[in-house]
Computed example of a mutant assay.
Amino acid sequence: MLNRNVSLLMLMAEITIALASVLGNVLVVLVVCVNRALRNTTFCFIVSLAVADIAVGVLVIPLAIVISLGFNTQFYTCLFLSCLLLIITQSSILSLLAIAIDRYLRVKIPTKYDIIMTQGRAYVAVCLCWILSFLTGLVPMIGWNNLNPQGNLSSSNEIVCKFTSVIRMDFMVYFNFFGWVVVPLSIMIALYAEIFRVIRRQLNKRAEATCDRDRYYRKELKLAKSLALVVFLFVVCWLPIHIINCIDFFCPKCKLPKFATYVGIFMSHVNSALNPLVYAFRIKRFRATLVQITNRCMLCKTTGPTPFNSASLSHPSITTADS
């Protein structure tokens, strides 16, 4: 009876997170569409991340619930459904990496940034992130899976669909975690460390700094802190399930409670609902537009058009969202 109550609570929590992820990230996309000042390359990547988080609420969480029920299906059907989870997760990581690279270029080469990072190239980068996510996420479909490893599984027979019954744990640890989580996150950490170093150095140049230049780097510092917080939350939410996978793989005799696995999976889903909160509380212009949308759509208030400051600062290539 206790297990049934716990399962019911987990199910309700998952449904709540799914709804919050979809609603919050749809608002992120809507805010960027409404406010022209946010339609820059950085928010292009943020929209890509929001789309991935919407997919978590629409696809990943429902699929995770269905797979946890252990329904009977063909091997490759179950494998494909499991690969969809990997694809969407990978797109989030690559979107975060693209955001970090974009911010690095903005503070490292501000005078050449607009020439190098055009809107068209940002769209191409987003497409490449998703293509790479599909390619890496579908790797188990071409052979790195649990089909007939010891002659006990067949693609023609029905199996009880479980993630671990079709996805090999060495794939999850070596390829997915070490190759496509640890490496991108390490690059992100290094990029943000360099971003903060460059900004601090520029802000310390009081003698040669103009008012506009100082304001530019202060804005960049605030936005970089917000985006670094998004990366930090991603690490906090996704690390538990990957640590559990590593323990299962490297220490098969170490028996972890199933509840720990459920909590790890749940934490990974929670991450998709947190990003809109970071934008709303940390990015001033985003928050102002969100309030306008809320007043207009939910409170039936008429508001003026979203303010757009087209004036650039005297520092070259300065067009960034307020933080």
Rank of each mutant, 00 (worst) to 15 (best):
A98N: 02
A50F: 01
Y104S: 04
P184H: 05
M1N: 14
F286H: 12
R4F: 08
G137H: 06
V198Q: 13
H242R: 11
A98V: 00
Y104N: 06
A224Y: 07
E220H: 02
K222R: 15
Q202E: 14
R168L: 11
S82L: 00
F175G: 04
I142G: 07
M267R: 08
D53G: 08
A224R: 08
R201K: 13
K205S: 13
R218I: 03
P305S: 13
S310L: 14
V236A: 07
L313G: 11
R213E: 13
Q150L: 01
V278C: 03
A50T: 00
V182H: 06
T289Q: 00
A18E: 05
T16H: 05
C297W: 15
L94I: 07
N245H: 15
Y123Q: 02
P305I: 12
E14Y: 12
N295F: 07
C33M: 15
C127D: 02
P184Q: 03
T73R: 13
Y262F: 13
L313H: 08
L81I: 07
L11S: 10
F234P: 00
E14M: 11
D322K: 01
E208D: 14
F171W: 14
R4T: 12
L105R: 15
S312C: 08
G304T: 13
I167D: 00
T16A: 09
L105D: 09
I131H: 05
T320I: 12
L97Y: 09
T136A: 12
S68I: 03
F134A: 12
G57D: 06
T111Y: 15
G137W: 04
E220W: 05
K108N: 07
S312A: 11
N25E: 03
A18K: 06
Y76S: 00
V60N: 06
A321V: 13
P240D: 02
V47W: 06
S133F: 06
T210H: 10
S133L: 03
V26D: 04
V278F: 01
P240A: 01
W130L: 05
T89R: 15
N275I: 15
R206S: 12
T164L: 09
H315I: 13
F250Q: 10
Y123K: 09
L85E: 06
K225C: 04
I15V: 07
P184C: 02
K112A: 08
Y123A: 01
L138M: 12
I88D: 02
S133K: 07
K205C: 10
V198F: 09
R201N: 09
M267H: 06
V278E: 01
I61E: 02
G151I: 00
I244F: 08
K205T: 11
G57I: 04
I167H: 00
T73D: 12
S92G: 12
I189A: 10
C251Y: 15
S154N: 10
D102S: 04
G304E: 14
V126L: 01
L9I: 06
N204R: 14
S154C: 05
I199T: 06
K225W: 07
V166T: 02
C78T: 05
R287I: 00
A288I: 04
C33G: 10
R282V: 02
D248E: 14
A190W: 14
A260E: 10
P149T: 03
I93W: 08
K108P: 00
I167V: 04
Q119T: 12
F163C: 04
T77V: 09
L23W: 12
A55M: 11
L59I: 11
I195C: 09
C211I: 15
T42H: 09
N157W: 03
A37G: 13
N271L: 10
C246L: 13
